[in-house]
């Protein structure tokens, strides 16, 4: 399943992608304080400030009316290009859109990375509709039967549920989580658009490869004690955590 149609007549195709994105996590809403800190950083590493796209994360701020416009101006003065805002209450979302910026839902679990955080990039389905990040249940895909070697089953927007086994050499992918009610012997990639909250759940773990938001483990890396057991896989503390499902 892919979002793009193979027609030569199309002017464009929509594609989901995972791009490395710098997140600028604001702990102050004061534009002048931001300006001072940016000036200091600029002198330290000028190479970084080359019209670098950044996502302004305002999740840690508790101000309903921050002056997004001035913060953006300060960023642009220092050759940073704000492309989107993450988090914040409704007025922040409205002013982001008014400024021509995208808006991302906040990440529930604040992580301590300051640079090179991977941002989720959702492929919009209808160009006109705003990007819906909370995956609607309609996007869940249910597959009944065995996913066989060489087959690929994917849920481009939501979760994937397989009632059956995923055999060796098969691949299952989902933007959200993957649930396998059977043996998982093939490759399972959850959170393919970068959703680190996605998980993988299966009745019998024999997977060739497990991946959540691009962080993967091979069969070799899996604790042999967990093989053959019901298991759950999550991304936590910068790595994949595989636990028995009890």
């Amino acid at each position: 399943m892919s979002l793009n149609a193979d027609s030569a007549d199309n002017a464009f195709t929509f594609k989901g992608g995972m791009l490395p994105m710098t997140v600028m996590e604001l702990s102050s809403a004061d534009p002048e304080q931001i300006r001072r800190q940016l000036a200091g950083k600029l002198s330290q590493s000028p190479a970084f400030f080359q019209h670098t796209p950044v996502v302004l994360s305002v999740e840690k701020l508790d101000e309903p009316h921050l002056s997004l416009e001035r913060i953006c101006a300060v960023c642009r003065d220092h050759k940073l290009l704000p492309v989107a805002v993450r988090g914040g209450p409704e007025p922040v979302r409205q002013s982001a859109w008014a400024l021509g910026l995208g808006w991302f839902a906040p990440v529930e679990e604040a992580r301590a990375r300051t640079l090179e955080s991977v941002e989720r990039v959702e492929a919009p389905v209808e160009p006109a509709a705003p990007v819906e990040l909370e995956a609607p249940t309609a996007a869940t895909r249910l597959y009944r039967g065995t996913v066989r070697s060489g087959q690929q089953v994917s849920a481009a927007e939501g979760d994937l549920i397989v009632i059956g086994a995923v055999n060796a050499g098969a691949e299952v992918l989902a933007a959200g989580s993957i649930h396998v009610y059977g043996a998982l012997r093939g490759r399972a990639l959850a959170g393919i658009h970068g959703n680190t909250q996605a998980g993988i759940y299966c009745r019998e773990l024999e997977a060739e490869l497990l991946s959540v938001a691009g962080n993967y483990k091979r069969l070799e890396d899996i604790d042999p004690k967990l093989l053959g057991c019901a298991a759950q896989v999550h991304f936590s503390e910068e790595q994949l955590e595989i636990k028995a499902l009890v």
């Binding site: 066989r148 070697s149 060489g150 087959q151 055999n167 060796a168 050499g169 098969a170």
Partner: peptide, 13 residues
């Protein structure tokens, strides 16, 4: 067994 699995996939598609 793996090759048979592949063939079964082709039979279904």
């Amino acid at each position: 067994v793996r090759d048979s699995d592949r063939i079964l996939g082709l039979l279904g598609s």
